[in-house]
Amino acid sequence: MNLSSKAENGALVVTVNETRIDAAVAIQFKDKMREETEDASNRVVLNLAQVDFIDSSGLGAIVAAMKQLGSDRRLDLAGLNENVERVFRLTRMDTVFKIHSSLGEALAG
């Protein structure tokens, strides 16, 4: 599970350099997110632009990553393709996360 992170505009941007977050990698994703966000101050933006598929295990791992951040820091999402967005919409998780159409929009706001 390849993640990379970079501080931008006061946020920590974590980019998923993989095409899938699925049951095969859900636990790794959660662990890597913990490592990448250890020093994050208040806001983390998860850039999913390269991801073209997530299943419910991948969704659960993203929820777990948000919970790991605790209530003082928040996790926003950016760059969801239509398949990934559908999973958030059907499970109503689009009401739990703030979802930005692009990384640019996430950092502008």
């Binding site: 419910s56 659960g60 791992a61 919970k67 999973v87």
Partner: peptide, 11 residues
């Protein structure tokens, strides 16, 4: 308390 599973069959 947010759920991390249980979404599969619903979808």
């Amino acid at each position: 308390d947010l759920p991390e599973g249980g979404f599969g069959w619903a979808m």
